[in-house]
Design a protein around this nucleic acid. Sequence first.
DNA 1: ATGGTCGCGAGGCGA
Length: 270
Amino acid sequence: MAVKIATWNVNSLRARADRVEAWLQRSDCDVLAIQETKCTDDNFPWELFERMGYEVAHFGVNQWNGVAIVSRVGLDDVERTFLQQPPYGKDGKDPVQEARAMAATCGGVRVWSLYVPNGRSLNDEHMPYKLQWLDILKSEAAKWLTIDPEAQIALTGDWNIAPRDEDVWDIDYFRNAELTHVSEPEREAFRAFETVGYTDVVRPFAPGPGVYTYWDYTQLRFPKKEGMRIDFILTSPALASRATGAMIDREERKGKGASDHAPVIVEFAD
DNA sequence: ATGGTCGCGAGGCGA
């Protein structure tokens, strides 16, 4: 079946409930993968989606992270965390499994909602966590294609990596400040998904330069058009061949109460 | 102008 899938880091679902509802209405998406709900199941706004006729599954353990999948074309075989997903333990504290990944089968597509660890800084212990998290996810994703080369898989979400120099507004600024998201280890971790067979299905329909999915709240980054392309939809080969269009909804970043990320949308034909 | 923005949750952390 034809299906329209979006991914969006909403940066708090409760603070943005009205915006999310309005966006879902006008975007007419069949599936929305959400990151950073910042909810637990207890304070998650279930009825918001149910009254629009969508099913919803959520994975959130505290006020951090949190991922969800919303669908009106079925929501089956919900899976929370990927196999071998590494936990995070700071300063030798007990490692905790964070709510950063979940999957569901919607309209025949295995949709993953992914919130890749930020990394924080090149020397922070969060960076090796980020790289290991991605490496293990890549290995799992490679296995899925080995098991079924025709699998319909969409790896969607906030990858916290800008794979190309043109994916940030000024690569020299990032290099000079030794910022994350553009380092070679991070980019290699991203390319590894392409090496095992996954494709960015949005970029061909929304080519750069100057095309971004995220703008920092500070420094007037959005009006100055100083953003980053860090949200992606990567798909298996069989699903990539069905992509007929895609867009980054930059309009949604405008105005008071916007998330710092824009929704990213792709359409697949039958 | 040595700051500037958010959200969560009630001080500081994470982004």
